[in-house]
Structures are given as C-alpha cells and as structure tokens.
Nucleic acid binder design. Structure first.
Length: 344
DNA sequence: AGTCGGGGAATGACAAGGTC
DNA sequence: GACCTTGTCATTCCCCGACT
C-alpha cells in the first residue's frame, strides 16, 4: 500500500489549496478524478506541475512518475468554444452547412448563451454570486476582470456576427447579468446599460484588432480615414450589413480554388454537368468568387465566362435559400452596372 | 522610487448611408 | 438637404509590469 500523498493545488492565483490523498494515484487520470471530486470542479481540466528539473517552472503533467514528492500542481481548464461539437452547435453547423466553406460563422442563436470564462474568472463570479445571494452585494468589477469578461464575450459574439446590432448587444448584456447577477450595475436603469456600452466599445476595438491582423472580413470596411486610400467604389454597407469578404477556408488558397473553378468551367461544357461536383466546388470557391467581385468588379459577361455554374437554376435557388437563412447580414452592394454580390 | 513602454477601454472626430 | 445613425480610427487616459 502506497503512503498518502500531500499536494499543493493552485486552483487560481487567489485559491491555493492543500490536498491530501489517502493513496498515491497510479495514473494521471486517477489523479484528475480525485482532484475533480475533492475540489468540486464542474469543468474539464488538465494539470501542470512545478518541475524541479526546470527550476520549478510549470510543465504539463503527462506521466504520473514525473511527479515529485509534495508536488505543486496547477489546474488548467480545458475551454470549450462555440464552434466545438456540442449537440447544439452540431445542429447549427448542419443547418448552415451551405455556408460552411465561406465562413466559420454560425447564425445568431435563438438564445445567447453566456460562454464559460477562464477558470479563475468563473471561480470569482461563482463566489460573488453566492455573496450576492446572501446579502445582495454587487461585485466591484476590477479592470482586469472586466477585460476578461469583455474579451470572451466579444470573441463569442464575433463567432456569430462581426457586426452585432443593438438588439444583439442588449441581449448579451441582459444575459450576462441574468447568469451572473453579481455583475448587475445598480446605478443603471436596466442593470446592464454599462455592460451594453462596454460591449460596443469592445467589439469595435476587437474589429480594429482583427483589421490590423489582416482579417479580410472586417478589413474591407476599413481605410476610410483622411490621408488613406479610399476603398475604391465599394459602397458603404447598410445598417446591420457588412461587406462580407470571407477569409479563404482552411487548406484552400487562390491556386487550389482557381483549379476548382477551371474544373467547373470544363464540366459545364458537357451536355450533363455533374451536379454534385458543381455544388461542391461552388461551395468551396465562395471566398475566391467574392474576392473577385469585390476587388475587380467584373462585368456580367466576364462573370458568366468565369463562373458559368453561378447562373444555373440550382445555384440561384440555393443562393436564394441561403440568403433567406442568413438574413441581410452578408450582402455587398456595388455600383450600378456591376454585379450585385447578393448574387454570390 | 521613478521612468518607460505596451495594452486596453473609452472618447470624439469624421465619413458615409439612411430617413424624413 | 438637414439631421440621424453607424462604423472606423486616431487619440487620450489609465494601469501594469519591466527595467534602472
């Protein structure tokens, strides 16, 4: 029988605990199970330990034999994202499959679920919510905590929509204080007005950051300041719309999409083009098509030559369907006489 | 302890489309 | 055409950590 084991466990920087296990765990999984039970953690996590071989720097724990005596362990939460394959998102990704090749974005959900924040933030909110339930004390939100909350919320919102509208911001702000009542702002009329404003600022700054990083989808609306090159003749998007210029899908580049385009041109010359091939290639070349329409503004004749399948009945029908599904958020407008890229 | 630089939240000017 | 609305972006302010 192994002797009992004493651990120092860093749940987060303000919560460091001494844990005693009756028996030394034989595997990492067994250690994870015991810690989950002892600490009452409601989320998935992995472990890091202070490795004496590296001056006590943190190292991922993959082999239980690596653990020194009386080790210091750190809990590292395994975050799930809205794009992970939960049952709900699976439904969304199937429903929006038509668009999967031109955006990682899913439709704005019926009810916005406040995402899980980093482990330390969740812990602090849980404590503050308990405090709130005891004596109605609201949490005094530090700048750092606010940053963590806004960062995660903006990231989640962006996964649904790059330009959320007023209702979206209101919904998220309201959902936030509903899930975490300790975050209610007693001075504001609805309790979340401050969060609403902060979210709007945050989202704007988030887009700026992405724009600087070269994200096409939001860059297309940039460059409107004095002394800058105007964005050619791309019309400013209407309210709640964006000039939707998606990044190329993972694993695709201009060359690979161009070869798919040529494949379709050849196939369209046949008496009976292969519908499945056309549908598949049209779907996966969306980003290239969009880029062409926006950047070169081709005439109708050129577009018909390059994308003959675009004007087939099935493609028009599928675009109408997807347009209805996506609401107006993805439209691009251009000058009279140019292709209206609602026909994408 | 003081200085410096980086990063983020917030502000306000500006541009451009929408509305009446 | 005046005013409103919305999004971008330069800028300011503040905080924090690194460095001296």
């Amino acid at each position: 029988m192994e002797a009992r084991t004493i651990l120092r466990v860093i749940v987060h920087e303000n919560d460091i605990r001494k844990i005693t296990l009756p028996v030394k765990p034989q595997t990492v999984d067994s250690l994870l199970e015991q810690l989950e039970e002892k600490l009452g953690l409601q989320y998935k996590f992995s472990l890091q330990f202070e490795d004496p071989d590296f001056n006590n720097s943190l190292v991922n724990l993959t082999d239980i034999a690596d653990l020194p005596d009386k080790p210091t362990l750190k809990i590292v939460s395994i975050m799930t994202t809205p794009t992970s394959s939960t049952a709900d998102t699976e439904i969304l990704s199937v429903a929006s499959d038509d668009h999967s090749s031109h955006s990682q974005r899913t439709a704005w959900p019926e009810t916005f679920e406040i995402p899980t924040f980093p482990v330390d933030v969740e812990y602090r909110l849980r404590q503050a919510n308990l405090q709130y339930m005891r004596d109605q004390t609201f949490l005094k939100v530090s700048a750092e905590l606010k940053h963590e909350i806004l960062e995660k919320l903006s990231e989640t919102m962006y996964s649904f929509r790059a330009y959320p509208d007023k209702e979206n911001f209101e919904e998220v702000a309201a959902a936030l204080i509903k899930k975490h009542p300790c975050l209610t702002q007693p001075g504001s009329s609805k309790g979340w007005n401050g969060w609403y404003n902060s979210l709007r600022w945050k989202m704007g700054n988030y887009r700026s950051k992405l724009r600087r990083a070269g994200c096409l989808e939001v860059s297309i609306n940039g460059g409107k300041r004095r002394g800058q090159q105007p964005q050619r003749n791309i019309k400013r998007p209407k309210r709640s719309e964006i000039n939707f210029l998606p990044n190329f899908p993972d694993g695709e580049d201009e060359t690979s999409m161009e070869s798919k385009r040529k494949e379709m041109v050849e196939d369209m010359k046949k008496r009976h083009p292969k519908a499945s091939l056309i549908a598949k290639n049209m779907n996966s070349t969306f980003a290239l098509r969009r880029k062409e329409l926006i950047e070169t503004e081709p005439g109708v004749k050129d577009t018909v030559e390059r994308w003959p399948a675009l004007f087939t009945e099935s493609q028009i029908f599928s675009r109408v369907q997807s347009h209805i599904w996506q609401k107006p958020a993805n439209r691009i407008l251009s000058r009279t006489g140019q292709i209206h890229s609602t026909v994408h």
